[in-house]
Each structure stands twice: as C-alpha cells, then as structure tokens.
Simulated assay, not measured.
Amino acid sequence: MIKSLVNNVVYGKKAFQPLFEKLHFISLYGMNIGSPTDVKTSGELFAISLILEKFQEEEFVIVFDVGANQGEFTKAVLSGLKKIKRKLKIFAFEPQKEAYTNFKENIKSSNVAVYNYGFSDTKGKKTFFQNNEISTLSSLYTTDALYEPKFDKERLEIELTTIDDFVEKKQISKIHYLKIDVEGHEFSILQGAKHALQNNKIEIIQFEFGNVNAIAKVFMKDFFDLLGDRYDIYRLLKDGIQKISKYDGKIEIYQTTIYLAIDKKLVI
C-alpha cells in the first residue's frame, strides 16, 4: 500500500526532483565519488597502508607514480612506508617540465628516481594540453568543453613510452603498486602494460576515472574487460575500499573517483 502510494505520488514527479537531485549528490559524495582527490582526503593514505600490510615481507618493494606532478603522492609513500624504506624503490614519471623540476626540488631521496616523460599504449610524441606548467588537470585530451573557456591555453609536445618497454629496459620483475593519475589516459597506459599484466608483474593498480574519460571515450567497462579476469576492482574510500563484485552500467559515473585493481591472489 505505502510502496504503491510512493510510486504513484513521489517517484518520477517533477515537484520532488530538487530533493532527489540533492539526495543523488549526497549519495555520490558518500560513496567517495567526485570527492576531493588530494592525497590527504581521497583515501590514498589508506591505499598506501595496503602496500605496507601486503608487501613488507618482500625483498624489494617497487612503486610506480605515473602522473607524479610535484610529488605529493611520492612524498606520502615515503612517509607512510618508513618501516620498509631500506628496500623501497619509487619510480616517478612526470612529462610537464616545470612540475618535473619542482618534483626534483621537493623530493631528494635515494629511494626515488624521477623521469621527465609519460606513458601510453605506444612509444612516441603527443600534444599535451595545460593551463599552466604545474597544473594537475593537464591532459593529453583537450578539456575546454569541461572547464572554463580556453582552459587548455598552452600546448607542448611530450615524450611517451610504455610500461612494458620501461620494465624490460630496467629489468623490473614486479611492480607492487602502480598509481596512475593522468587525466583520462589511464586506460591507454594499461594497454601499454599488457605484457606485464599477462605475466602477473603488477600486484595493485590505482587508477582514476572521471569526466576526462568522457572526452577520451573510455568506459569503466573497458577497465573491467582488461583487468577483470586477474584483478578484483574496488572503489577507494577515505578509510577503506568497497568491492565492486561485477560490472554494472550504473557505475559509469563521470565524476573523479579513485579505484584499486587488486590481484585476486592477494588476500584483502
């Protein structure tokens, strides 16, 4: 009786749309979808604690910081993993020259190697769009449609390689934690790591999914198709992770959200 009344009087009715829109926003924020994504508030500090929990017995622990900008994530890793600092190695990658220079000034550690190029699915050069030289919103995709007019006021050519090529050259047998924050190019980077993925060389992958993925024409389904056989996928929360048991079209939400793909062999 009550359910029927609500269906007839409330659901889908114009008068209640402002309420439902507000509830929708609250629900997304409550699920950490579209929430602030700096390291201290995004849940990344919890993700870093997983590295310590799962890999502290390893002989070496390798972390990739792809889209390192000025080093906020790398700095948090160094701070959070002090207990295993002696066997920790962080490889950081930042194609923006000014951000790369600032990274080197901000972080001086024998545990860190930083490179002034990015990753993709193939090697080569591409046009990079930025609104300033250290912007965290710079991208390989023009984002004028998403942000204020002429947001992409600067263009530069950047060097790109693949994770597979880098891993082979550096003879890296295992990446324990791969963090990717590259404004819409995450999926292409993972396509350039197919050999590493197929040979179980990557344990945990942190990637973003947000509005720039709409410009890149990438869906969450693409990540599930690429990773679903070997990884469980979780949404990162401020104090934990929430498993996404299976793909559903309802998760195609283009609001910046951090996900973890965790090797199914790891016990979480």
Score class of each variant (00 low, 15 high):
residue 3 K to M: 05
residue 10 V to S: 06
residue 10 V to H: 07
residue 14 K to Y: 11
residue 14 K to M: 09
residue 18 P to T: 06
residue 20 F to R: 07
residue 23 L to I: 10
residue 25 F to H: 09
residue 26 I to G: 01
residue 27 S to H: 07
residue 29 Y to V: 00
residue 30 G to Y: 07
residue 31 M to V: 00
residue 33 I to V: 07
residue 33 I to K: 04
residue 33 I to G: 00
residue 36 P to K: 08
residue 37 T to N: 04
residue 37 T to E: 00
residue 37 T to P: 01
residue 44 E to T: 00
residue 44 E to C: 00
residue 45 L to P: 00
residue 49 S to Q: 08
residue 50 L to P: 00
residue 52 L to W: 02
residue 56 Q to D: 09
residue 61 V to K: 04
residue 62 I to R: 09
residue 67 G to C: 10
residue 68 A to N: 08
residue 73 F to I: 03
residue 76 A to Y: 02
residue 80 G to E: 02
residue 81 L to T: 01
residue 82 K to Y: 02
residue 83 K to E: 11
residue 87 K to A: 03
residue 88 L to K: 06
residue 92 A to G: 03
residue 92 A to R: 06
residue 96 Q to I: 05
residue 97 K to G: 03
residue 97 K to Y: 14
residue 98 E to C: 06
residue 98 E to T: 14
residue 98 E to Y: 07
residue 100 Y to T: 05
residue 107 I to P: 04
residue 107 I to E: 11
residue 112 V to N: 14
residue 112 V to H: 15
residue 117 Y to H: 13
residue 118 G to Q: 06
residue 122 T to C: 06
residue 126 K to P: 00
residue 128 F to D: 05
residue 130 Q to H: 10
residue 131 N to G: 04
residue 132 N to Y: 10
residue 134 I to M: 12
residue 136 T to E: 11
residue 140 L to P: 03
residue 143 T to K: 10
residue 144 D to C: 09
residue 144 D to N: 15
residue 146 L to S: 06
residue 147 Y to H: 15
residue 148 E to M: 12
residue 148 E to T: 11
residue 150 K to Q: 12
residue 151 F to Y: 15
residue 152 D to K: 11
residue 157 E to T: 14
residue 157 E to S: 13
residue 159 E to V: 07
residue 162 T to F: 12
residue 165 D to L: 11
residue 170 K to Q: 15
residue 179 K to F: 05
residue 179 K to M: 09
residue 180 I to K: 10
residue 181 D to H: 13
residue 182 V to W: 06
residue 185 H to P: 05
residue 186 E to N: 13
residue 186 E to V: 09
residue 190 L to F: 11
residue 190 L to K: 13
residue 193 A to H: 12
residue 205 I to Q: 08
residue 206 Q to W: 02
residue 206 Q to T: 02
residue 208 E to I: 07
residue 209 F to P: 03
residue 210 G to S: 14
residue 214 A to F: 13
residue 223 F to Q: 12
residue 227 L to Y: 14
residue 232 D to W: 08
residue 238 K to T: 11
residue 243 K to T: 02
residue 245 S to D: 10
residue 246 K to P: 00
residue 258 I to L: 11
residue 268 I to N: 08
